[in-house]
Simulated assay, not measured.
Amino acid sequence: MTVQIAINESAHYPHSVEEIWKLCGAPGEADQWLPAVAKSWLDGDVRYAELAGGVGTARERITEHVDARHYYDYDYIDGPLVLKAFSSRFAVVAASEGGADILWTAQFQADNETEGDELRQAVSGMYQGGLQRIGEVLASDRV
């Protein structure tokens, strides 16, 4: 029986949407702020991400990229993780209390609850590592 898995990670930053988007808005430059990715690039609408530790390369199709609204959507094509029907959105939004929030969501299917939990932990851990690193890069004024 296939199970649906949803991931919702977010973080707040005392920086503007524009500052954050300058760092994170180019899908092919995820290696600048995502610790799990050693090297990344775009070839057309496909992002290649060489994962840290030599575990392999993931391919993701950028299905929508809207700079004016500060988000992009992507689907996992293939790579080291067995992710079925995986789609994700990376978005930066203004926060009502000032600063901005990153909302990083994903949905995918797994063959069973155990597999789903393992994949949820792996993807959530990667997203959380990225959100933490974004804060570190922004605080270091490297943007």
Score class of each variant (00 low, 15 high):
52 A>C: 06
131 L>C: 06
57 T>W: 03
76 Y>W: 15
126 M>F: 09
64 E>H: 07
44 G>D: 06
30 A>E: 09
40 S>K: 08
47 R>K: 13
100 A>G: 12
51 L>T: 08
143 V>F: 00
82 V>N: 11
128 Q>F: 06
84 K>E: 14
30 A>Q: 12
3 V>G: 07
66 V>L: 12
141 D>M: 09
39 K>S: 11
107 Q>Y: 03
2 T>M: 13
83 L>S: 05
21 W>A: 00
20 I>C: 01
14 P>T: 07
8 N>P: 00
87 S>W: 00
35 P>M: 05
63 T>R: 07
51 L>F: 13
117 D>Q: 15
69 R>C: 04
68 A>F: 10
80 P>M: 11
101 D>S: 09
3 V>N: 07
102 I>E: 01
24 C>A: 15
128 Q>Y: 03
50 E>T: 14
102 I>K: 00
19 E>M: 03
77 I>Q: 08
52 A>L: 12
9 E>G: 04
113 E>N: 11
102 I>V: 15
72 Y>Q: 05
27 P>V: 12
123 V>C: 07
107 Q>W: 00
55 V>M: 12
36 A>C: 11
27 P>W: 04
102 I>G: 04
68 A>V: 10
35 P>C: 03
102 I>C: 05
78 D>W: 09
40 S>A: 08
120 R>T: 06
96 S>F: 09
11 A>K: 12
71 Y>A: 03
142 R>M: 08
86 F>A: 02
139 A>V: 02
102 I>P: 00
25 G>E: 07
97 E>R: 12
15 H>V: 00
57 T>H: 01
99 G>A: 10
32 Q>D: 08
74 Y>C: 03
68 A>C: 06
17 V>A: 05
40 S>V: 01
22 K>H: 14
70 H>A: 08
137 V>Q: 02
60 E>S: 13
81 L>T: 06
22 K>A: 14
89 R>L: 04
113 E>D: 15
7 I>L: 14
65 H>D: 02
13 Y>K: 06
134 I>T: 01
45 D>K: 12
134 I>V: 15
81 L>M: 13
130 G>V: 04
9 E>I: 09
8 N>V: 11
108 F>N: 03
6 A>P: 06
75 D>S: 15
26 A>V: 13
131 L>M: 09
134 I>E: 02
78 D>T: 10
62 I>M: 05
52 A>D: 08
121 Q>E: 14
100 A>W: 01
70 H>R: 12
100 A>M: 03
39 K>T: 10
135 G>H: 08
133 R>G: 00
93 V>L: 12
62 I>P: 00
126 M>H: 06
55 V>L: 10
1 M>Q: 10
73 D>N: 13
142 R>C: 06
115 E>A: 14
137 V>F: 05
4 Q>P: 07
6 A>V: 08
